[in-house]
């Protein structure tokens, strides 16, 4: 059983600021961390490996500095760490990112099961997982809250759909994205850290990929353009509602109606 977990490095803080003139992000501090949602994905992969055997590969697309994140992944227990990094990948949106990861997965010889996090804390789209599945032509279930059963050839998972929960079964190869709290992620182990200190991290760049059509990578391969960014209007304002008791109650009613609560 071969499992690939996709993980992304995100800024350590979400307190970002926008330069009002240029509409771009002000420099975010150098501090970065593993997307917290991806720790659940790693944990799910490790538990499946413990149950049915096989290997877990952590895969990321991002800058070279992701090495530290990959060391942490080794310390949690993954078998192999692969970084896809190339200036040609810069500026990728969901379509280009998922295509690049798909190319990487192909280069690694494919996988029986691919696991992604629910979403990231920066781009926050929750779209990469299903997009990878579409590129690969394999089925997926998103936002899995529970894994009911896993064998060497199939997986059965729980997802919430509307006001119901659905149990779905898929044969491998397939992809799942896991919700937070599916499991408690283990902490990086000092012992594993020592054992893997010299373990290699594999780097993949554009020239290694089989599809070298430049129109599918990076900024050129990205149909969405972030035109500008701005700070949301703050809702810190405070308002006293005046009038008779009836008028006050009516004002609350209108307020709730405007907010689509009723």
């Amino acid at each position: 059983m071969k499992i690939i977990v996709c993980i992304k490095q995100v800024p350590a803080t979400m307190k970002v600021e926008v330069d009002a003139e240029s509409g771009t992000l002000k420099r975010i501090g150098q501090n970065a961390k593993t997307n917290p949602y991806d720790l659940y994905a790693i944990e799910a992969a490790l538990r499946i490996r413990e149950q049915v055997g096989g290997s877990v590969t952590a895969l990321t697309m991002g800058p070279q500095q992701t090495e530290e994140m990959m060391r942490d992944a080794y310390m949690m227990g993954v078998d192999e760490a692969v970084v896809m990094s190339d200036p040609k990948f810069a500026g990728s949106d969901v379509l280009a990112t998922s295509f690049t990861l798909f190319q990487g997965i192909r280069l690694l010889g494919g996988a029986d099961l691919i696991i992604c996090g629910k979403q990231t804390t920066d781009g926050d789209t929750a779209q990469i997982g299903p997009a990878i599945a579409e590129h690969m032509g394999i089925p997926h279930v998103a936002w899995v809250s529970n894994i009911e059963r896993v064998t060497t050839d199939l997986i059965s998972v729980i997802q919430k759909t509307g006001s119901f929960i659905q149990e779905s079964e898929m044969k491998f190869p397939c992809l799942i994205t896991v919700d937070k709290d599916i499991f408690v992620p283990r902490l990086p182990s000092y012992r594993l850290g020592l054992a893997t200190a010299n373990k290699n991290i594999r780097f993949i760049s554009f020239k290694d990929l089989s599809d070298k059509n430049m129109t599918r990578y990076g900024l050129i391969g990205s149909p969405t353009k972030v035109e500008k960014m701005f700070q949301p209007e703050s809702s810190d304002g405070q308002e006293y509602i005046n009038g008779t008791s009836i008028e006050k109650a009516d004002s609350i009613f209108e307020l709730l109606k405007n907010q689509k609560i009723i």
């Binding site: 969901v94 379509l95 789209t125 929750a126 779209q127 599945a133 998103a142």
Partner: peptide
């Protein structure tokens, strides 16, 4: 929704186009 956000990335990928989330 949980369903819409699972479906839409497959569609936008199939048509090689952009999808803006949420």
């Amino acid at each position: 929704t949980s369903v819409g956000r699972s479906l839409s990335p497959r569609l936008s990928t199939r048509f090689h186009t952009g999808l803006t989330a949420d």
